[in-house]
Nucleic acid binder design. Structure first.
Lengths: 202, 202
DNA sequence: GAACGTAACACTAACGGTTAGGGTTTAACA
DNA sequence: TGTTAAACCCTAACCGTTAGTGTTACGTTC
């Protein structure tokens, strides 16, 4: 797909590093594999690893940008006048299903076993919540406060996070989104600085 | 107050380390001060610092256990039949007021300037959310699902976190808690595995 | 198509948080 | 008073991460 040979080589190097890292991590455990091991096995220099990935933990969450894009896309890519939450609920369902699928099980077992990886995922989720809040706040069809937008974004991310660990993840998504819909309905009503009337500036 | 001399000396050492660290951090910046600097200035060994604090970042959030105790206390320490959310809202107000007070301003400025500190605070909040969820789930007067309890706990922590950064923090607490109350009212109603019993104690 | 600019990568060496190992003091208690 | 163990010290490392400095080879331009 990418036209230049340079970009293709770069992508190949990145992919080789990520694949090698994940394989070594799953074989010997995340903590038992050092960055120098990954670099040697992938036949690159240590500095090259860090030019592709910001930190060791990022090797595990290689495709987290898809996550973010899909969530914000559920906000920005909907038809005018269409309500916000059904699309977010649908996307959350898809993400939870993807994470609890059988193929991802060993990876998540590894993540749950490593405090560093869990912490990294936590702050990753908060970044996603920020992006989602920005997308919600930028929607011209919504009249809620910036505070309500940020709160809603956090709630949605929470839904994903809590549901992923629940006994019945799919049911948990629905359960939490039921709560979120109630919260979103009253947002901007009584105690916000903004009036409940749409299209009101400031 | 603590009876033993040993415990008093230990507490004094811990306090001396924390005070020294905070002073150096505020004087020269968090990144510019190393653990070895803190240890030298406090006249202890580096290993002693880490026997009192799990990580460098923990030196800044010295009294985070109070935070957790106050939140869970708002759940466990209320009169029987008393509703859950007013107490949590009151406590969140107090915490936000405490964090946005003028005395804490330089500390929060330092935290906001350091990615490591921000990330540490993020995962700290999640720990608190877990404790809060456990306290809520353990309350015999509540009939909600474990999933709903975890979601509510996250929402409350979110309220604190979002409100702390809002233009008008106090108003933001009320705004978000308005949303949370709506969410909590419908929790356990339609799609939960547990019965929709609206319950005894109001 | 030769020359140039630069992006990607390599190598070395270090920095800083963190921990293991092993030893010393001293409070607590029988 | 003697014993135990907690708190502390010191040294030496480990490991993630980065700065500094070249080197290669792709893309571009004349």
């Amino acid at each position: 797909m990418p036209p230049g040979r340079r970009e293709r080589k770069k992508a190949a190097t990145r992919q080789k590093i990520a694949d090698t890292a994940l394989r070594l991590f799953l074989e010997h455990g995340y903590d038992a594999v050092g960055i120098r091991d990954v670099a040697n096995e992938a036949d690159v220099a240590v500095t090259t690893v860090f030019s592709h990935f910001a930190a060791k933990e990022a090797l595990v969450f290689e495709q987290d940008q898809d996550f973010e894009r899909r969530l914000t896309g559920a906000v920005t890519g909907r038809a005018p006048g269409e309500p916000l939450l059904p699309g977010l609920r649908r996307e959350t369902h898809a993400l939870v299903r993807h994470c609890t699928g059988s193929g991802a099980a060993p990876i998540w077992r590894m993540i749950d076993a490593s405090p560093a990886l869990r912490e990294y995922e936590d702050s990753m989720r908060l970044r996603h919540a920020e992006s989602l809040a920005a997308a919600i706040a930028a929607d011209p069809g919504l009249s809620q406060t910036a505070t309500a937008a940020r709160a809603l974004a956090r709630f949605v991310i929470d839904a994903y996070s809590v549901a992923r660990e629940a006994d019945d993840p799919e049911a948990a998504v629905d359960e939490i989104f039921h709560m979120i819909e109630a919260a979103w309905e009253v947002a901007g009503a009584a105690p916000g600085p903004r009036g409940a009337v749409p299209a009101d500036g400031r």
